[in-house]
Design a protein around this nucleic acid. Structure first.
Lengths: 225, 225
DNA sequence: AAGAATTTTAAGCAAAATTTAAGCTTCCCC
DNA sequence: GGGGAAGCTTAAATTTTGCTTAAAATTCTT
């Protein structure tokens, strides 16, 4: 899951990035409205977190532009004021929810999860066949035995399962899991696919990750055609 | 033990926070009904202290909403009036007890303890394997021998045990145990984990605190998968 | 106010995770 | 069947993260 934070205060932005990466999100940061808008329009994010008071282009304006471009990505705005009018103004501009500063990190997290749950209602049970993953507790179960995965391994598996029954192209994987935007010839994905398979097979998941030559990988829900 | 105070007067709120933290409670404050309700619904508190006369959303309304959400957390309300009808009205809205302003801090504390005692009887005690902790007396037993912990050590262990079988991320720990919201660069947690482990191991608790690299720590109840 | 206990900071070290790079295997198309 | 591209595997290099320790700063006690 890939997030963009538009926030000018480096302290807050850094804190959010660290905390969210611990939750296995891939996080980009923009320090002003203009570059934030650029990023939001160029890349495919699963959610935007925008501070209302930022230089170059206000949060509201960014929000409007994103919507004007027809992008329905969930937007959460951070505000110091929470007067009714400000909130209404923000929601009218196209935001989905707001949170008042200073806030608890957990509250932010809860609201992010609400938005992401809304985003793909069909897809919120994160499982495929015998595999079951829990993004909140960071656990992976294969039947009844737990797998111990490293952070990157977990993100990759999560991404594949969230997009199960769809082919995940290499470029999408590298963007969403590694947060690399430019094309580079790296074989990191291959390596991590190998790592995952090596842990999944002995646990009884079989060869659940299938290779689509020339394109990418797919995890299929068994029993569907 | 985590408390939420919903009180608009900063003086009173601050006074309560200080006093309760001396008693080893972790205290959050909300200065109006709306943000108080948000916090109460998102986080898991052991007790709410709500002033009846607060802006944005009245204490009664907050109380009703909490109950409506099916949350059975004990609620203590602060009131300036103590006419019989007001009290009845409050208790009907779902509060568990009330205290009239101005009040003695000791009395408040006593009433809090009553509510928490009730709570503890229903819930199972705070333990994990051979470890047993008592949040009221601040004692830790490992089998039959008592461990002497400093306040911070105790809070950290308590937090981990309260969340046993769940991964506690570094951000959550720093928020709940240290009450730091915007500091990404500290190694206090590592140090305290070392302190705890150094006291726990010789007492026979083994390596009960496990590290989840890149994320945080977890205490597992032995015998569960 | 001095001393003791606790908490925090900082640095070096060790271990784990990640990335890179190279050789090997498989698949596809001619 | 051969050549080449794509993917797989492995090992080594690099980076990140956590552990430990000691010392500094703070808080509590007497």
């Amino acid at each position: 899951m890939r997030l963009l934070i538009i926030e000018d205060e480096p302290g807050i932005a850094g804190f959010l990035k660290d905390g969210l990466e611990e939750e296995y999100f891939a996080v980009d940061i923009a320090y002003d409205g203009k570059s934030g808008l650029d990023l939001a329009l160029i890349n495919e994010y699963d959610l935007l977190i925008i501070d209302w008071m930022i230089p170059a282009l206000s949060g509201i304006e960014v929000c409007r532009q994103v919507r004007k471009a027809g992008n329905p990505v969930p937007i959460l705005f951070l505000t110091a004021k929470d007067t009714l009018e400000d909130v209404l103004f923000g929601l009218e501009a196209g935001a989905n929810d707001y949170i008042k500063k200073p806030f608890e990190f957990e509250e932010l997290l809860a609201r992010i999860r609400v938005q992401l749950r809304n985003k793909n209602q069909n897809n919120d049970s994160l499982s495929a066949g015998i595999l079951n993953i829990n993004p909140v507790t960071h656990q992976v179960f294969c039947g009844s035995n737990e797998l111990i995965l490293t952070p990157k391994e977990f993100s990759l598996l999560e991404y594949l399962i969230r997009n199960k029954d769809r082919v995940c192209t290499r470029s999408r994987i590298i963007e969403h899991v590694w947060d690399i935007h430019f094309d580079s010839d790296t074989s990191v994905i291959d390596v991590y696919i190998t790592f995952l398979r090596r842990k999944l097979e002995p646990a009884g998941a079989g060869n659940i990750i299938q290779t689509i030559r020339g394109v990418g990988y797919i995890i299929r829900e068994p029993g569907l055609s």
